[in-house]
Design a protein around this nucleic acid. Structure first.
Lengths: 138, 138
DNA sequence: CTATTTGCAAACCCTTTGCAAAAAT
DNA sequence: ATTTTTGCAAAGGGTTTGCAAATAG
């Protein structure tokens, strides 16, 4: 809570209750959609509007606090930016799992960046999962 | 042209002029959006409707002929399925470059699939590009 | 006090859908 | 002749925007 206020000050953003709610909810729920955020925040702050969620996420994205996770189902999901990781999306139930970079991927990415003269910002993997905890798909 | 008709017969789809146009345009332009396809096809076939492009892409996707490329800008792009490759999206101008799998990535993917018990279907990389041919970004 | 942020409603844009007419096999 | 496909227009769903009122610093 106090952390959020400090973070927002650092980013030169005003610490409105709505903004803080968005940050709080982002740490609570993993990869929420806009609507997930909106519905959750409304429980504690019924006057919160969807447009405000959108505007706050846009602002936080610009400041690098939040990143988008795109699983190509028509809705964006959001994540507080922490350490670099990959998103593995279950092709069956659309659940998202985070996987930390391992040495292999670091090596691959470094080589790719050198060879192709790019700077990788995001790496998304869509996969079918043999045993997804959520959808129980075999 | 004749190839398309054979392909469609294989997939048990009727070879309508509209369908063939979609396939033809997909081989001409790389990663077109729906609107790219629609506008291009309309030049030769002015009665073509956007809905028909959508319906044909949906059908071709189901049959595995076409894959989606999602660069998270609100529009899907489409690609005739060929060999496995990665899409590298320029963060600046949204252009998409294909990169073939190399040994590094194969190794990485194999390890990831074993470790995480998944089957990778798609791998998208969003990157900032030092010298993008299209946007000239330095 | 000033600049930012909020909330509302309307607008936007891409995509999907229902249905009757047309076309493919 | 049967089934699929087309084209139109309307609807859908997520996201963005304009603007006046409210709020943070």
């Amino acid at each position: 809570m106090q952390d959020f206020i400090i973070l927002l000050k650092e980013k030169e953003l005003k610490a409105t209750p709505q903004r803080i709610s968005v940050l709080k909810e982002l740490t609570k729920k993993k990869h929420p959609t806009m609507d997930d955020l909106y519905e959750a925040i409304k429980l504690e702050n019924p006057s919160m509007s969807l447009a405000t969620v959108y505007k706050n996420i846009a602002t936080l994205k610009e400041k690098g606090v939040v990143i988008e996770v795109n699983i190509a189902d028509g809705k964006m999901r959001y994540d507080i930016y922490s350490t670099p990781h990959i998103h593995i999306v279950c092709k069956n139930c659309q659940s998202i799992r985070d996987i930390d970079y391992n040495e292999n991927l670091f090596d691959y990415q470094n080589k790719l960046e050198l060879d192709e003269k790019i700077k990788v910002e995001r790496l998304d993997i869509v996969a079918s999962v043999e045993s997804c905890l959520l959808c129980q798909k075999k």
